[in-house]
Design a protein around this nucleic acid. Structure first.
Lengths: 195, 195
DNA sequence: TCACGCACTGTATATTTGTACAATATACCG
DNA sequence: CGGTATATTGTACAAATATACAGTGCGTGA
Protein backbone atom coordinates (compact mmCIF):
# COMPACT_ATOMS: atom_id res chain seq x y z
CA UNK A 1 0.00 0.00 0.00
CA UNK A 2 3.06 2.29 0.05
CA UNK A 3 2.83 3.22 -3.57
CA UNK A 4 5.41 5.95 -3.98
CA UNK A 5 8.35 3.79 -2.98
CA UNK A 6 10.84 5.52 -5.21
CA UNK A 7 14.56 5.19 -5.05
CA UNK A 8 15.80 8.74 -5.35
CA UNK A 9 19.37 7.53 -5.78
CA UNK A 10 18.60 6.39 -9.29
CA UNK A 11 18.08 8.56 -12.31
CA UNK A 12 14.49 8.79 -13.47
CA UNK A 13 15.29 6.66 -16.49
CA UNK A 14 16.78 3.88 -14.38
CA UNK A 15 13.91 4.16 -11.92
CA UNK A 16 11.40 3.68 -14.71
CA UNK A 17 13.21 0.56 -15.89
CA UNK A 18 13.35 -0.81 -12.36
CA UNK A 19 9.68 -0.20 -11.64
CA UNK A 20 8.74 -1.57 -15.05
CA UNK A 21 10.61 -4.81 -14.40
CA UNK A 22 8.86 -5.12 -11.07
CA UNK A 23 5.37 -4.60 -12.46
CA UNK A 24 6.04 -6.65 -15.60
CA UNK A 25 7.24 -9.55 -13.48
CA UNK A 26 4.21 -9.28 -11.23
CA UNK A 27 1.41 -8.67 -13.71
CA UNK A 28 2.93 -9.09 -17.15
CA UNK A 29 3.67 -6.30 -19.57
CA UNK A 30 0.15 -6.39 -20.93
CA UNK A 31 -1.21 -6.22 -17.43
CA UNK A 32 0.69 -3.10 -16.46
CA UNK A 33 -0.18 0.30 -17.83
CA UNK A 34 2.36 3.02 -18.41
CA UNK A 35 0.35 5.05 -15.95
CA UNK A 36 0.96 2.48 -13.24
CA UNK A 37 4.67 2.60 -13.99
CA UNK A 38 4.81 6.38 -14.09
CA UNK A 39 2.89 6.66 -10.85
CA UNK A 40 5.15 4.27 -8.94
CA UNK A 41 8.28 5.73 -10.43
CA UNK A 42 7.21 9.25 -9.48
CA UNK A 43 7.28 10.61 -13.01
CA UNK A 44 4.76 11.42 -15.69
CA UNK A 45 3.75 9.20 -18.54
CA UNK A 46 5.27 11.58 -21.01
CA UNK A 47 8.72 11.00 -19.60
CA UNK A 48 8.49 7.31 -20.31
CA UNK A 49 7.66 7.87 -23.93
CA UNK A 50 10.39 10.49 -24.05
CA UNK A 51 13.03 8.05 -22.84
CA UNK A 52 11.82 4.84 -24.42
CA UNK A 53 9.62 6.02 -27.25
CA UNK A 54 6.93 3.42 -26.95
CA UNK A 55 5.87 0.70 -24.56
CA UNK A 56 7.58 -1.88 -26.75
CA UNK A 57 10.74 0.17 -26.43
CA UNK A 58 10.49 0.10 -22.66
CA UNK A 59 10.01 -3.66 -22.67
CA UNK A 60 13.02 -4.01 -24.94
CA UNK A 61 15.12 -1.86 -22.60
CA UNK A 62 14.02 -3.85 -19.56
CA UNK A 63 14.94 -7.13 -21.23
CA UNK A 64 18.27 -5.79 -22.45
CA UNK A 65 19.11 -4.82 -18.89
CA UNK A 66 17.97 -8.17 -17.56
CA UNK A 67 20.07 -10.15 -20.02
CA UNK A 68 23.09 -7.93 -19.46
CA UNK A 69 22.85 -8.62 -15.75
CA UNK A 70 22.79 -12.36 -16.29
CA UNK A 71 25.58 -12.26 -18.83
CA UNK A 72 27.76 -10.37 -16.36
CA UNK A 73 26.89 -12.78 -13.60
CA UNK A 74 27.95 -15.87 -15.49
CA UNK A 75 30.84 -14.33 -17.39
CA UNK A 76 34.38 -15.62 -17.05
CA UNK A 77 36.12 -14.42 -13.92
CA UNK A 78 39.80 -14.43 -13.12
CA UNK A 79 39.31 -16.68 -10.14
CA UNK A 80 38.18 -19.48 -12.46
CA UNK A 81 41.10 -21.79 -13.04
CA UNK A 82 40.36 -25.42 -12.34
CA UNK A 83 38.76 -27.20 -15.26
CA UNK A 84 36.37 -29.39 -13.37
CA UNK A 85 35.11 -26.93 -10.79
CA UNK A 86 34.30 -24.21 -13.29
CA UNK A 87 31.08 -25.72 -14.55
CA UNK A 88 29.79 -26.05 -11.04
CA UNK A 89 30.80 -22.44 -10.44
CA UNK A 90 28.90 -21.34 -13.53
CA UNK A 91 25.77 -23.08 -12.31
CA UNK A 92 26.20 -21.59 -8.89
CA UNK A 93 26.68 -18.06 -10.16
CA UNK A 94 23.51 -18.29 -12.23
CA UNK A 95 21.56 -19.51 -9.23
CA UNK A 96 23.06 -16.86 -6.97
CA UNK A 97 22.21 -14.09 -9.38
CA UNK A 98 18.62 -15.23 -9.81
CA UNK A 99 18.33 -15.76 -6.09
CA UNK A 100 19.49 -12.20 -5.48
CA UNK A 101 17.06 -10.84 -8.07
CA UNK A 102 13.70 -12.53 -7.58
CA UNK A 103 12.07 -10.12 -10.00
CA UNK A 104 14.35 -11.42 -12.72
CA UNK A 105 13.26 -14.94 -11.88
CA UNK A 106 9.60 -13.96 -11.97
CA UNK A 107 10.00 -12.20 -15.29
CA UNK A 108 11.85 -15.13 -16.83
CA UNK A 109 9.24 -17.52 -15.48
CA UNK A 110 6.42 -15.60 -17.04
CA UNK A 111 8.12 -15.12 -20.39
CA UNK A 112 9.86 -18.46 -20.87
CA UNK A 113 7.21 -20.76 -19.50
CA UNK A 114 4.09 -19.13 -20.85
CA UNK A 115 4.67 -16.78 -23.70
CA UNK A 116 6.73 -19.42 -25.47
CA UNK A 117 4.95 -18.60 -28.65
CA UNK A 118 4.81 -14.88 -29.01
CA UNK A 119 6.43 -12.21 -26.93
CA UNK A 120 8.47 -14.54 -24.74
CA UNK A 121 9.97 -16.55 -27.57
CA UNK A 122 12.35 -13.73 -28.35
CA UNK A 123 13.63 -13.49 -24.80
CA UNK A 124 14.05 -17.25 -24.54
CA UNK A 125 16.03 -17.29 -27.75
CA UNK A 126 18.26 -14.43 -26.65
CA UNK A 127 18.81 -16.11 -23.29
CA UNK A 128 19.70 -19.40 -24.94
CA UNK A 129 22.12 -17.80 -27.37
CA UNK A 130 23.73 -15.82 -24.57
CA UNK A 131 24.25 -18.94 -22.50
CA UNK A 132 25.71 -20.73 -25.50
CA UNK A 133 28.06 -17.82 -26.12
CA UNK A 134 29.27 -17.84 -22.52
CA UNK A 135 29.94 -21.56 -22.53
CA UNK A 136 31.77 -21.36 -25.83
CA UNK A 137 33.85 -18.60 -24.32
CA UNK A 138 34.80 -20.84 -21.42
CA UNK A 139 35.62 -23.62 -23.84
CA UNK A 140 37.82 -21.35 -25.92
CA UNK A 141 39.69 -20.59 -22.72
CA UNK A 142 40.03 -24.30 -22.19
CA UNK A 143 38.30 -24.26 -18.84
CA UNK A 144 35.04 -26.00 -19.65
CA UNK A 145 34.75 -29.67 -20.35
CA UNK A 146 34.78 -30.42 -24.03
CA UNK A 147 33.76 -34.02 -23.61
CA UNK A 148 30.17 -33.08 -24.32
CA UNK A 149 29.12 -30.62 -27.00
CA UNK A 150 28.33 -27.08 -25.90
CA UNK A 151 24.65 -27.37 -26.81
CA UNK A 152 24.33 -30.26 -24.42
CA UNK A 153 25.88 -28.22 -21.63
CA UNK A 154 23.51 -25.35 -22.30
CA UNK A 155 20.51 -27.66 -22.14
CA UNK A 156 21.88 -29.00 -18.89
CA UNK A 157 22.18 -25.66 -17.13
CA UNK A 158 18.96 -24.22 -18.52
CA UNK A 159 16.73 -27.19 -17.91
CA UNK A 160 18.15 -28.51 -14.70
CA UNK A 161 19.28 -25.36 -12.89
CA UNK A 162 16.99 -22.72 -14.33
CA UNK A 163 14.08 -25.13 -14.62
CA UNK A 164 14.16 -25.91 -10.95
CA UNK A 165 14.16 -22.26 -10.01
CA UNK A 166 11.23 -21.57 -12.30
CA UNK A 167 9.21 -24.45 -10.91
CA UNK A 168 9.85 -23.95 -7.22
CA UNK A 169 6.91 -21.58 -6.58
CA UNK A 170 4.65 -24.21 -8.09
CA UNK A 171 5.94 -26.76 -5.60
CA UNK A 172 5.55 -24.37 -2.70
CA UNK A 173 2.05 -23.49 -3.73
CA UNK A 174 0.84 -27.07 -3.88
CA UNK A 175 2.56 -27.98 -0.66
CA UNK A 176 0.84 -25.01 0.93
CA UNK A 177 -2.57 -26.15 -0.20
CA UNK A 178 -1.91 -29.59 1.18
CA UNK A 179 -0.73 -28.28 4.51
CA UNK A 180 2.73 -29.70 3.97
CA UNK A 181 6.01 -28.03 4.68
CA UNK A 182 7.28 -26.72 1.35
CA UNK A 183 10.84 -27.05 2.58
CA UNK A 184 10.46 -30.81 2.70
CA UNK A 185 9.70 -31.03 -0.99
CA UNK A 186 12.20 -30.02 -3.59
CA UNK A 187 11.94 -30.67 -7.26
CA UNK A 188 14.94 -32.22 -8.90
CA UNK A 189 14.99 -32.15 -12.66
CA UNK A 190 17.14 -34.17 -14.94
CA UNK A 191 17.20 -34.33 -18.66
CA UNK A 192 17.06 -37.84 -20.02
CA UNK A 193 18.55 -38.36 -23.42
CA UNK A 194 16.46 -40.91 -25.27
CA UNK A 195 19.03 -41.84 -27.90
CA UNK B 1 -6.57 -16.76 -40.51
CA UNK B 2 -9.87 -18.65 -40.69
CA UNK B 3 -11.50 -16.77 -37.91
CA UNK B 4 -15.06 -18.02 -37.95
CA UNK B 5 -14.15 -21.60 -37.19
CA UNK B 6 -17.32 -22.31 -35.31
CA UNK B 7 -18.62 -25.67 -34.35
CA UNK B 8 -22.28 -25.50 -35.23
CA UNK B 9 -22.92 -28.79 -33.45
CA UNK B 10 -22.58 -27.07 -30.11
CA UNK B 11 -25.03 -24.73 -28.50
CA UNK B 12 -24.00 -21.11 -28.52
CA UNK B 13 -23.36 -21.23 -24.80
CA UNK B 14 -21.03 -24.21 -25.09
CA UNK B 15 -19.35 -22.64 -28.10
CA UNK B 16 -18.62 -19.50 -26.13
CA UNK B 17 -17.06 -21.54 -23.35
CA UNK B 18 -14.96 -23.52 -25.82
CA UNK B 19 -13.69 -20.46 -27.66
CA UNK B 20 -13.06 -18.70 -24.37
CA UNK B 21 -10.90 -21.57 -23.12
CA UNK B 22 -8.95 -21.50 -26.36
CA UNK B 23 -8.26 -17.78 -26.25
CA UNK B 24 -7.65 -17.73 -22.50
CA UNK B 25 -5.11 -20.53 -22.86
CA UNK B 26 -3.40 -18.72 -25.72
CA UNK B 27 -3.38 -15.12 -24.51
CA UNK B 28 -4.61 -15.20 -20.94
CA UNK B 29 -8.00 -14.00 -19.79
CA UNK B 30 -6.74 -10.45 -19.47
CA UNK B 31 -5.35 -10.63 -22.95
CA UNK B 32 -8.59 -11.67 -24.59
CA UNK B 33 -11.51 -9.33 -25.02
CA UNK B 34 -15.10 -10.43 -24.95
CA UNK B 35 -15.33 -9.08 -28.48
CA UNK B 36 -12.62 -11.47 -29.65
CA UNK B 37 -14.52 -14.33 -28.08
CA UNK B 38 -17.84 -13.27 -29.52
CA UNK B 39 -16.38 -12.85 -32.97
CA UNK B 40 -14.78 -16.30 -33.04
CA UNK B 41 -17.82 -17.94 -31.53
CA UNK B 42 -20.08 -16.34 -34.10
CA UNK B 43 -22.26 -14.56 -31.56
CA UNK B 44 -22.62 -11.05 -30.25
CA UNK B 45 -21.07 -9.68 -27.11
CA UNK B 46 -24.48 -9.26 -25.55
CA UNK B 47 -25.07 -12.98 -25.61
CA UNK B 48 -22.00 -13.63 -23.54
CA UNK B 49 -23.12 -11.26 -20.83
CA UNK B 50 -26.58 -12.76 -21.06
CA UNK B 51 -25.32 -16.29 -20.42
CA UNK B 52 -22.47 -15.59 -18.03
CA UNK B 53 -23.29 -12.19 -16.63
CA UNK B 54 -19.82 -10.81 -16.48
CA UNK B 55 -16.35 -11.69 -17.72
CA UNK B 56 -15.48 -13.07 -14.32
CA UNK B 57 -18.54 -15.28 -14.60
CA UNK B 58 -17.32 -16.61 -17.93
CA UNK B 59 -13.88 -17.37 -16.50
CA UNK B 60 -15.51 -19.16 -13.60
CA UNK B 61 -17.64 -21.24 -15.97
CA UNK B 62 -14.63 -22.13 -18.12
CA UNK B 63 -12.67 -23.28 -15.06
CA UNK B 64 -15.61 -25.23 -13.68
CA UNK B 65 -15.85 -27.09 -16.98
CA UNK B 66 -12.12 -27.69 -17.07
CA UNK B 67 -12.00 -29.11 -13.56
CA UNK B 68 -15.08 -31.25 -14.18
CA UNK B 69 -13.40 -32.76 -17.21
CA UNK B 70 -10.31 -33.65 -15.23
CA UNK B 71 -12.30 -35.01 -12.32
CA UNK B 72 -14.23 -37.28 -14.67
CA UNK B 73 -11.05 -38.40 -16.37
CA UNK B 74 -9.36 -39.54 -13.20
CA UNK B 75 -12.46 -40.78 -11.39
CA UNK B 76 -12.81 -44.38 -10.26
CA UNK B 77 -13.75 -46.74 -13.03
CA UNK B 78 -15.16 -50.25 -12.75
CA UNK B 79 -12.22 -51.73 -14.59
CA UNK B 80 -9.92 -50.72 -11.75
CA UNK B 81 -9.36 -53.72 -9.53
CA UNK B 82 -5.75 -54.51 -8.86
CA UNK B 83 -4.33 -52.56 -5.97
CA UNK B 84 -0.86 -51.92 -7.33
CA UNK B 85 -1.71 -51.03 -10.92
CA UNK B 86 -4.38 -48.51 -10.07
CA UNK B 87 -2.03 -45.68 -9.19
CA UNK B 88 -0.23 -46.09 -12.48
CA UNK B 89 -3.61 -46.07 -14.21
CA UNK B 90 -4.55 -42.87 -12.44
CA UNK B 91 -1.37 -41.20 -13.61
CA UNK B 92 -1.91 -42.47 -17.11
CA UNK B 93 -5.49 -41.26 -17.30
CA UNK B 94 -4.47 -37.79 -16.21
CA UNK B 95 -1.76 -37.70 -18.85
CA UNK B 96 -4.09 -39.05 -21.52
CA UNK B 97 -6.73 -36.48 -20.75
CA UNK B 98 -4.28 -33.58 -20.84
CA UNK B 99 -2.70 -34.99 -23.97
CA UNK B 100 -6.10 -35.08 -25.64
CA UNK B 101 -6.90 -31.53 -24.54
CA UNK B 102 -3.84 -29.39 -25.14
CA UNK B 103 -5.84 -26.25 -24.43
CA UNK B 104 -6.45 -27.54 -20.92
CA UNK B 105 -2.72 -28.05 -20.51
CA UNK B 106 -1.98 -24.56 -21.80
CA UNK B 107 -4.55 -23.00 -19.48
CA UNK B 108 -3.25 -24.90 -16.47
CA UNK B 109 0.29 -23.96 -17.38
CA UNK B 110 -0.53 -20.28 -17.50
CA UNK B 111 -2.56 -20.28 -14.31
CA UNK B 112 -0.58 -22.63 -12.10
CA UNK B 113 2.92 -21.65 -13.08
CA UNK B 114 2.54 -17.91 -13.42
CA UNK B 115 -0.48 -16.50 -11.71
CA UNK B 116 0.37 -18.46 -8.60
CA UNK B 117 -0.33 -15.38 -6.57
CA UNK B 118 -3.57 -13.91 -7.74
CA UNK B 119 -6.05 -15.28 -10.22
CA UNK B 120 -4.36 -18.65 -10.67
CA UNK B 121 -4.05 -19.43 -6.98
CA UNK B 122 -7.73 -20.26 -6.81
CA UNK B 123 -7.57 -22.71 -9.70
CA UNK B 124 -4.46 -24.37 -8.30
CA UNK B 125 -6.14 -24.81 -4.95
CA UNK B 126 -9.29 -26.25 -6.49
CA UNK B 127 -7.19 -28.60 -8.62
CA UNK B 128 -5.20 -29.75 -5.62
CA UNK B 129 -8.27 -30.35 -3.50
CA UNK B 130 -9.94 -32.24 -6.32
CA UNK B 131 -6.94 -34.49 -6.77
CA UNK B 132 -6.84 -35.12 -3.04
CA UNK B 133 -10.54 -35.99 -3.05
CA UNK B 134 -10.08 -38.48 -5.88
CA UNK B 135 -7.18 -40.20 -4.20
CA UNK B 136 -9.03 -40.40 -0.92
CA UNK B 137 -11.92 -41.93 -2.82
CA UNK B 138 -9.65 -44.62 -4.21
CA UNK B 139 -8.26 -45.23 -0.73
CA UNK B 140 -11.70 -45.58 0.74
CA UNK B 141 -12.35 -48.20 -1.87
CA UNK B 142 -9.17 -49.87 -0.76
CA UNK B 143 -7.57 -49.76 -4.17
CA UNK B 144 -4.89 -47.17 -3.58
CA UNK B 145 -1.79 -47.81 -1.59
CA UNK B 146 -2.10 -46.59 1.95
CA UNK B 147 1.55 -47.03 2.78
CA UNK B 148 2.14 -43.36 2.07
CA UNK B 149 -0.23 -40.61 3.15
CA UNK B 150 -2.64 -39.24 0.57
CA UNK B 151 -1.02 -35.80 0.54
CA UNK B 152 2.23 -37.40 -0.48
CA UNK B 153 0.53 -39.19 -3.35
CA UNK B 154 -1.06 -35.97 -4.54
CA UNK B 155 2.27 -34.19 -4.53
CA UNK B 156 3.71 -37.10 -6.47
CA UNK B 157 1.16 -37.00 -9.29
CA UNK B 158 0.95 -33.23 -9.47
CA UNK B 159 4.65 -32.48 -9.40
CA UNK B 160 6.02 -35.41 -11.33
CA UNK B 161 3.30 -36.12 -13.87
CA UNK B 162 1.66 -32.73 -14.27
CA UNK B 163 4.92 -30.87 -13.80
CA UNK B 164 6.52 -32.66 -16.69
CA UNK B 165 3.63 -31.89 -18.99
CA UNK B 166 3.70 -28.24 -18.02
CA UNK B 167 7.43 -27.97 -18.60
CA UNK B 168 7.70 -29.84 -21.88
CA UNK B 169 7.11 -26.81 -24.16
CA UNK B 170 9.98 -25.11 -22.37
CA UNK B 171 12.26 -28.02 -23.21
CA UNK B 172 11.11 -28.08 -26.81
CA UNK B 173 11.62 -24.39 -27.19
CA UNK B 174 15.20 -24.42 -25.95
CA UNK B 175 16.06 -27.48 -27.95
CA UNK B 176 14.67 -25.71 -31.00
CA UNK B 177 16.84 -22.67 -30.45
CA UNK B 178 19.88 -24.91 -30.10
CA UNK B 179 19.09 -26.83 -33.26
CA UNK B 180 18.66 -30.03 -31.28
CA UNK B 181 15.96 -32.61 -31.71
CA UNK B 182 13.40 -31.93 -28.98
CA UNK B 183 12.47 -35.60 -28.97
CA UNK B 184 15.90 -36.52 -27.66
CA UNK B 185 15.46 -34.46 -24.54
CA UNK B 186 12.82 -35.23 -22.02
CA UNK B 187 12.53 -33.75 -18.60
CA UNK B 188 12.12 -36.16 -15.76
CA UNK B 189 11.06 -34.68 -12.48
CA UNK B 190 11.29 -36.24 -9.11
CA UNK B 191 10.44 -34.83 -5.77
CA UNK B 192 13.12 -35.27 -3.19
CA UNK B 193 12.04 -35.36 0.38
CA UNK B 194 14.63 -33.64 2.49
CA UNK B 195 13.64 -35.12 5.82
C1' DT C 1 25.06 36.11 -21.27
C1' DC C 2 22.84 33.39 -24.36
C1' DA C 3 21.58 29.68 -27.06
C1' DC C 4 21.04 24.97 -27.35
C1' DG C 5 20.01 20.40 -25.72
C1' DC C 6 17.93 17.63 -22.52
C1' DA C 7 14.71 16.19 -18.75
C1' DC C 8 10.20 16.67 -17.75
C1' DT C 9 5.22 18.12 -17.55
C1' DG C 10 0.35 18.32 -18.90
C1' DT C 11 -3.12 17.86 -22.18
C1' DA C 12 -5.49 16.01 -26.12
C1' DT C 13 -7.04 12.12 -28.91
C1' DA C 14 -8.33 7.91 -30.99
C1' DT C 15 -9.04 3.20 -29.71
C1' DT C 16 -10.34 -0.57 -26.93
C1' DT C 17 -12.49 -2.43 -23.10
C1' DG C 18 -16.45 -4.30 -19.96
C1' DT C 19 -21.00 -3.63 -18.96
C1' DA C 20 -25.93 -2.21 -19.42
C1' DC C 21 -30.10 -2.24 -21.72
C1' DA C 22 -33.91 -2.01 -24.87
C1' DA C 23 -35.59 -4.43 -28.81
C1' DT C 24 -36.39 -8.59 -31.54
C1' DA C 25 -36.57 -13.41 -32.81
C1' DT C 26 -37.38 -18.14 -31.44
C1' DA C 27 -38.94 -22.02 -29.06
C1' DC C 28 -41.91 -24.19 -25.94
C1' DC C 29 -46.13 -25.11 -23.24
C1' DG C 30 -51.05 -24.43 -22.05
C1' DC D 1 -53.53 -20.52 -31.31
C1' DG D 2 -51.71 -17.37 -27.61
C1' DG D 3 -48.46 -16.23 -24.40
C1' DT D 4 -44.49 -16.46 -21.82
C1' DA D 5 -39.75 -17.52 -21.07
C1' DT D 6 -35.51 -17.76 -23.25
C1' DA D 7 -32.05 -16.88 -26.86
C1' DT D 8 -30.00 -13.35 -29.46
C1' DT D 9 -29.07 -8.86 -31.40
C1' DG D 10 -27.56 -4.03 -31.69
C1' DT D 11 -26.46 0.14 -29.57
C1' DA D 12 -24.84 3.12 -26.14
C1' DC D 13 -21.61 4.55 -22.59
C1' DA D 14 -18.11 5.41 -19.25
C1' DA D 15 -13.56 4.12 -18.05
C1' DA D 16 -8.89 3.00 -19.28
C1' DT D 17 -5.24 2.81 -22.51
C1' DA D 18 -1.08 4.04 -25.64
C1' DT D 19 0.55 7.56 -28.11
C1' DA D 20 1.42 12.34 -29.81
C1' DC D 21 2.66 16.80 -28.99
C1' DA D 22 3.34 21.52 -27.49
C1' DG D 23 5.25 23.58 -23.94
C1' DT D 24 8.41 24.61 -19.54
C1' DG D 25 12.42 24.52 -16.71
C1' DC D 26 17.35 23.96 -16.32
C1' DG D 27 22.14 23.15 -16.78
C1' DT D 28 26.29 23.61 -19.67
C1' DG D 29 29.49 25.19 -22.88
C1' DA D 30 30.85 28.98 -26.10
Amino acid sequence: MSHPVINVDLTAKARIRQVALELFALNGSDGTSMRAISSRAGVTVGLITHHFGTKAGLIQAVEDDLLDGIANAIAYQETDESVDGVVRKLDQRLLDHIDANPLVAAYLRRMMLIEGNGAGADLTERFTRMALRQIQDLRRRGIASTSRDAEDQVMQVMLVQLGQVLMQPFVDQIAGHLGQDPQRYQLSLRKTRTT
